[in-house]
């Protein structure tokens, strides 16, 4: 759906790799997760909780919440507001999120 401008300095220089549905995407440290995913022609990035309709990023500025995705195992994150980090694992979320598995039990005080 989107491509990098060919005269952009970002076409070379430092690279970061993230994994979208296990497929690598090579991107820049300044990209948001949503921007990086849009480079890969994702089609959709989530399905809605109500009717399971496909959706994709709409506003890219944190206001529409259409870009909610599973980032490193935690769902419902605004992908347009989260900067990429090397090795990140990103997935579409499918309707209502599941509870994250690992639970750090808080210490009782």
């Amino acid at each position: 759906m989107f491509r990098r401008h060919d005269k952009s300095s970002q076409a070379n220089g430092d690279n970061v790799t993230i994994y979208f549905e296990d497929a690598p995407i090579i991107c820049k440290p300044t990209d948001s997760v949503a921007a990086a995913v849009l480079l890969s022609d994702p089609g959709y990035t989530r399905r809605t909780p109500v009717t399971k309709a496909p959706r994709a990023p709409y506003c890219m500025m944190g206001t529409c919440f259409e870009c909610l995705m599973d980032i490193n195992g935690v769902e419902n994150q605004q992908a347009c507001m989260v900067p990429v980090r090397d090795g990140m694992k990103v997935r579409r979320q499918n309707g209502v999120p599941v509870l994250p598995e690992d639970s750090k039990e808080p210490e009782n005080d």
Binding site: M1, F2, R3, H5, M61
Partner: peptide, 22 residues
């Protein structure tokens, strides 16, 4: 999917030097 705001496309240009490919 594929429908965005004009501002979103501009944001992608500003923040990631990206433009719609189709």
């Amino acid at each position: 999917p594929g429908v965005m705001t004009a501002g979103a496309a501009q944001t992608l240009l500003k923040s990631s030097a990206m433009l719609p490919s189709g």
